[in-house]
Amino acid sequence: MDRWQSMRVFVRVAESGSFAGAARQLHMSPPAVTRAVASLESRIGTRLLTRTTRSLKLTEAGGRYFEDCRRILSEIEEAEAVAAGAYATPTGTLTVTAPVQFGRLYVLPVIVDYLALHSAVGVRALFLDRVINMMDEGADVGIRIGALPDSGLVAIRVGTVRRVLCATPDYLDRHGTPGMMRDLQDHAIIGSMSAGLLGGGRPGGKGRMGVPLRPRLICNTIDAALAAALAGQGIVNLLSYQVAPSVAEGRLKLILDDPDAAPMPVHIVSSEGRRAPAKVRAFIDLAVERLRADPMVNPDRS
């Protein structure tokens, strides 16, 4: 048995916690698995596993060797994939995650065009209003809005969004247009728990610039808060991309200029960088081009 196969056997034994389990998974006999690990230990000159009748544990040297073996074997598999063309032609399933409404409005059109361009790829779209662990969820590409925490993800900035205040023209005709932030306390406020309440996160709380605000309606979803605003029920505070279609159609009107509404960056993130498979690179290239060209996502280029 060659060295690389012996390493594969050792890794499977360590992962499964038993020689018998590794043998079943590898379709090998238990004695062959035992000989492979013994061969490695003999070649290296140190014990990798501590064996008892009831347990199997990695030694300190075995733990380090296990991590190195996994890395080396992963690089070998990657090299084989490159040679086979998996890194040249988009194939397989791509998993993309984004906030719900941003995904529906801006990412889904990119996905549709991507599928049309690459017939050998399928896409799994995870549109969620929460930040997920991309590795745990098996996501290849993510769209993140806001400041990025320190992580191992590779990020490409594609634009900015900001919080805005808006209401229907009819509501403003009936109740007047506020001229400054303090005027908001005389208006019906619509709050969204998904986007953060305008009134400081709770009914009757202090809003921005110390203005006491009492939302008449608090919704647990962005869509519901937006629908209430479109029905003329008050002033809503949402992200610019969330109201952009309604503003463009004239159904909502932007009011004031919230001094606390600092722009928030929009990034495309992935974990593999330049060594990513073709399916990931092709999607990122297309998404960067489309999102940077969209004035709703990248207002500086409008």
Results as ranks from 00 to 15, higher is better:
P212Y: 04
A293H: 13
N133E: 03
G21E: 11
P169L: 06
C219K: 05
L239V: 00
D183Q: 02
M193N: 08
G232A: 07
T160A: 10
Y106F: 10
T91E: 14
P277K: 01
S39L: 07
V112Y: 10
L291M: 05
V96F: 09
G250N: 11
R144K: 10
I190V: 13
G159V: 02
P295G: 07
G234R: 06
H175A: 08
Q233F: 01
V112I: 13
D285E: 15
P149Q: 07
R8L: 09
L48D: 00
S16G: 01
A125K: 08
V33K: 06
M296L: 10
M296G: 11
P31N: 10
G176Q: 06
C69D: 05
M296W: 11
D285L: 14
R124P: 07
L115F: 07
V110N: 05
D260F: 04
D129A: 00
V141G: 06
G204N: 12
S240K: 08
G146D: 03
F66K: 03
G142R: 05
P265I: 02
G85F: 02
G142E: 00
M28G: 10
G176W: 06
R202I: 04
G45I: 07
A167Y: 03
I132E: 10
I189D: 00
G199P: 01
T59E: 01
D150M: 05
G92S: 04
A38P: 06
A23E: 07
D136C: 02
A86C: 04
A276Q: 03
D113Y: 03
R130F: 07
A282D: 14
T59N: 08
D260L: 12
P90Q: 02
R51M: 10
R3V: 07
V211D: 01
P295T: 00
A88S: 15
P215I: 00
Q233H: 11
D150Q: 11
Y65E: 04
I111F: 07
M134R: 00
G103N: 06
S16K: 12
I143T: 00
G21R: 12
M193F: 11
A278E: 06
L198R: 05
P263S: 02
R290K: 15
V96E: 09
A229H: 00
R301Y: 01
T160W: 14
D257Q: 12
P203M: 14
S74L: 05
L56E: 09
E77I: 04
R47V: 09
P259Y: 00
S16C: 14
D285V: 07
D223I: 01
A20E: 15
F66V: 02
G92Q: 09
R12N: 11
Q5R: 15
D183G: 05
V164Q: 04
Y65C: 00
T95M: 08
V243K: 13
A278G: 05
V161I: 09
M135W: 09
